[in-house]
Computed example of a mutant assay.
Amino acid sequence: MRIDIITCIPEMFTGTVDQSILKRAADKNVAHIHIHNLRDYAVNKHNQIDDYAFGGGAGMVLMIEPIEKCISGLKAQRNYDEIIYMSPDGELLSQGISNELSLNENMILLCGHYKGVDERVREHLVTREISIGDYVLTGGELAAAVVADSVIRLIPGVMNDETSALTDSFQDNLVAPPVYTRPAEYKGWTVPEVLTSGHEAKINDWRFKQAVKRTQEKRPDLLSEDIK
């Protein structure tokens, strides 16, 4: 997979794309992230990429020309499955969306800034808009990093144990059950006996019931009627 991120603050990704899962994916040649500075496509010698909004109002707006030039240049080199604008009013990121995006070969993530982008970018250039929550960030950079991480970790070959992602929270509309590790007893606090029994069927049954219980307590909105 290839993810191209368009941003006016490329420094926001320093130390992010070359760490942890993202670095492992690159080292394994499974997925690569490329950062593109929108100012490289500025409209004049002053590196202008934003301007005042027509009609007045507070805040600046990212101009269409630099964004279109960058996207067109990338599309001239390869086909893209999705061109995604990180927007607070986009569809809310979910595990299901991350699963879907992990099947793509090439994606562009466009980071907004200031008061957003010229509406014509949304009308003519992007294929999808995604939000990571009902709140506003300074720009789309942190949101793009979240999307990249949530997607890349699902690609086969990235994680050492590929079954691990299948048991993550939200994969089956349940949050994950409790997990424990050694020692089995610490200061009188013990691990449930079933987990040390070696009985796989009983362990799986316990984990499912605990996942349902925890979901009922923490995220009842996720439960389907037949589980409730």
Rank of each mutant, 00 (worst) to 15 (best):
H32R: 10
L38W: 05
G112C: 08
T7Y: 09
V146Q: 01
V212G: 07
L62G: 04
M86Q: 09
D221E: 14
C70D: 12
A26T: 09
Y114S: 02
K45M: 11
H199N: 15
C111S: 11
I155K: 01
G139C: 10
H124C: 07
V30A: 01
I152C: 06
V121E: 07
A148E: 13
M60K: 06
R78N: 15
T16D: 03
K202C: 00
S72R: 12
R207I: 08
E91S: 13
N204E: 15
N47Y: 15
P66I: 00
D205L: 08
A25G: 04
L195T: 10
K69A: 00
R128E: 11
V17L: 13
L195G: 12
L74A: 09
Y135Q: 04
E185N: 14
P177Q: 01
K213W: 03
C8Y: 13
I203H: 13
M63L: 15
A145K: 03
F54H: 11
R24P: 03
R214A: 08
A148G: 13
C70K: 02
S164E: 02
I35M: 10
R128A: 09
E82A: 12
S150D: 12
K213D: 10
D168L: 12
P192F: 04
T16V: 14
L154S: 03
V151N: 11
R122G: 14
D81V: 03
D89N: 14
D51L: 07
E217T: 08
G198V: 12
N47A: 13
S169N: 02
S169A: 11
R153D: 13
Y180K: 05
F208D: 04
A145S: 15
I67A: 08
Q77V: 12
Q216N: 00
A58L: 07
A76V: 05
K202V: 02
R182W: 11
G96I: 01
G116P: 01
E105Q: 15
M1W: 13
A184T: 07
F54E: 11
R120Y: 10
D149M: 02
D149G: 08
P220W: 02
A31K: 00
Q216H: 04
N204S: 12
Q216Y: 00
H124R: 11
Q171M: 12
L222F: 04
E162V: 06
S224L: 06
Q48I: 10
E123W: 00
S20Y: 07
I84M: 08
A184L: 01
Q77K: 15
